[in-house]
Amino acid sequence: MKQRLIIGGMFAAAVAGLPGISLAGDIASIQPIGFSADGKVFAFQEFGIKESDKAPYSETYFIDTDSGQYLEGTPFRTELTDKDANLSKARRQNLTAARSQMDKYDLLTNPGLIAAFNPPTELGSPTKTLRYTTLAADGPPKAPYTLSLGELPVSTPKECTAVDKRVIGFSLQVIEKEGAPNRQAARQATAVPAERTCSVEYRIGGAVVYQPEAGNQVHIALVLAFDAERNGRWIAVPVHP
Rank of each mutant, 00 (worst) to 15 (best):
G73Q: 08
F117P: 01
A85V: 02
T133S: 01
S36L: 05
K158F: 15
D66H: 13
N86H: 10
S52C: 00
D82I: 07
F44R: 04
T127H: 01
T78H: 10
L152N: 12
T129P: 06
N110F: 05
A136T: 04
L107V: 09
A115G: 03
A143R: 06
Q69W: 14
K165L: 08
I114N: 02
Q101T: 11
R77K: 10
K158N: 14
T78A: 11
A37G: 15
N86E: 09
P75Y: 06
K158S: 14
F47R: 01
I49C: 00
K165V: 02
Y57W: 01
Q45W: 13
A115K: 00
G139C: 11
D38W: 09
A162G: 07
I49Y: 00
T60E: 08
P111D: 13
G39P: 06
A98C: 11
R77P: 06
T127I: 01
A143P: 04
D138G: 15
Q93V: 11
T96P: 11
Y61T: 02
E151H: 15
S67F: 12
A43P: 05
G112K: 03
P157G: 05
V41Q: 07
T146W: 02
S88V: 15
A115N: 00
K83F: 09
K158T: 12
S36M: 05
M102Y: 04
V167M: 14
Q45N: 15
T65L: 08
D66G: 13
T129F: 04
D138K: 14
A97I: 12
S148E: 03
N86A: 08
P157L: 06
F76K: 14
D164T: 12
C160P: 10
P120C: 08
E46V: 02
A97F: 09
R77M: 04
G39T: 05
K165S: 03
A136W: 05
P56H: 04
K89M: 15
S125I: 09
A98K: 10
P111T: 11
L113S: 10
G73S: 09
L123W: 10
T81K: 15
S36K: 05
I168A: 09
L135N: 11
E59S: 02
S100P: 10
F44H: 07
N110I: 06
D66N: 13
P153S: 10
G112F: 04
G39H: 03
S125W: 07
L95K: 02
T109H: 08
I63A: 06
T65D: 08
P75Q: 12
L87I: 10
T81M: 15
S88P: 15
F117K: 00
R166P: 07
F44G: 04
K158P: 14
Y145S: 00
M102G: 04
G150K: 05
K158W: 14
P111H: 11
S148Y: 01
